[in-house]
């Protein structure tokens, strides 16, 4: 699989750009969090494309962003559960 570059992305329409980035990010996230991969990828795709490209080149920054997303998601779910039981 050839690396995803900024120029490769620039040739695609905006929605397709996010799909292309998601296709690269998803497998990495799936290895870390199989059940949450789709949701976490969706959250990360709201980040600027330039930052996402950087994360693909730097697995450490991608990993820390994924952990941040998991924390946000869990806090959100805990809040929802608390509201339901209240």
């Amino acid at each position: 699989q050839e690396p995803l570059t900024a120029s490769l992305l620039a040739g695609a329409p905006p929605q397709e750009q996010k799909q292309m980035l998601g296709e690269r990010i998803y497998p990495v996230i799936h290895e870390m969090h199989p059940t949450l991969a789709g949701k976490i990828t969706g959250m990360l795709l709201e980040i600027d494309n330039s930052e996402l490209l950087h994360m693909l080149e730097s697995p450490e920054s991608l990993h820390s962003k994924v952990e941040e997303a998991v924390a946000v998601l869990q806090a959100h779910q805990a809040k929802e559960n608390a509201q339901k039981s209240a």
């Binding site: 789709g38 709201e46 980040i47």
Partner: peptide
């Protein structure tokens, strides 16, 4: 610092992982 990530973001559906119907 508050995270900018949105827990209500739309879920991503990967084409390459799509189940055949």
């Amino acid at each position: 610092r508050k995270s900018t990530l949105n827990p209500n973001a739309k879920e991503f559906n990967p084409r390459s992982y799509a189940q055949p119907k």
